[in-house]
């Protein structure tokens, strides 16, 4: 996508000169204790937390979402999937807000098909926290069916309010369970994820 990417090792402590940081998926530290709980204390994370608090864009995908949650950059926590299964399949998510750099080029109500691959993606937040997320327009993506409806079956892992992706209050930190980076090329089956990265690049170019 014509963007230069720099890989940062977890022991590194220099995050200068970056336009944004993506915390990818995986199973850091074997998911021991809780997903993301140990990775949250790696040296790079201390720098990343500072970067995010200064307003730097940070996107956590899957295990990356769990890590930014554990780091307290986004409110809430992850439980095991409601039906206790590891879910690895394409799901539909609906764009709920375009008031963020991540979704500004997308359309509200647009349905994207993006794969998920996780065992602990059952998002939890208490009622007051949820209300705050809703009032501040922090929910960017919800799990829906192919028609864009939030049916009970569409909520694949049991997440509170069908939440698939949310931001912090300042909207510079996004956490999402689906993997947009795995939907980048029609030749490989799907490319809806590309629109999300195009939106980000566009927002960064303007900024």
């Amino acid at each position: 996508m014509n963007a230069e990417v720099k890989f940062l090792w977890h022991k590194e402590t220099d995050v200068s000169g970056l336009d944004m940081i993506i915390v990818p998926g995986g199973f850091s530290y074997g998911d021991y204790l809780r997903s993301g709980a140990i990775a949250r204390f790696s040296p790079i994370m201390q720098e990343l937390i500072g970067y995010a608090k200064r307003g730097g864009p940070v996107m956590g995908i899957c295990n990356g979402f769990q890590i930014v949650l554990e780091a307290g950059l986004i409110p809430g926590a992850m439980r095991h999937n409601e039906q206790l299964k590891f879910i690895c399949k394409d799901v539909h998510i609906r764009v709920e807000s375009t008031q963020s750099m991540y979704t500004s080029s997308l359309h509200k109500g647009q349905v994207l098909t993006i794969p998920v691959s996780h065992g602990e993606g059952n998002y939890y937040i208490d009622n007051d926290g949820l209300k705050e997320l809703q009032d501040n327009d922090q929910v960017l993506f919800r799990y829906v069916n192919a028609h864009g409806e939030t049916t009970p079956e569409a909520n694949i892992n049991g997440s509170v309010d069908h939440i698939a992706g949310i931001t912090n209050k300042q909207k510079n930190v996004l956490g999402m369970m689906p993997h947009p980076e795995r939907a980048m090329e029609q030749l490989l089956g799907k490319e809806d994820g590309k629109q999300l990265f195009e939106s980000i690049l566009q927002a960064l170019a303007v900024a």
Binding site: N81, E82, N122, G158
Partner: peptide, 12 residues
């Protein structure tokens, strides 16, 4: 887990 939190492992 807090009592109000669903426990899928316990349920299974």
């Amino acid at each position: 887990l807090r009592p109000s939190i669903l426990d899928p492992k316990g349920k299974a």
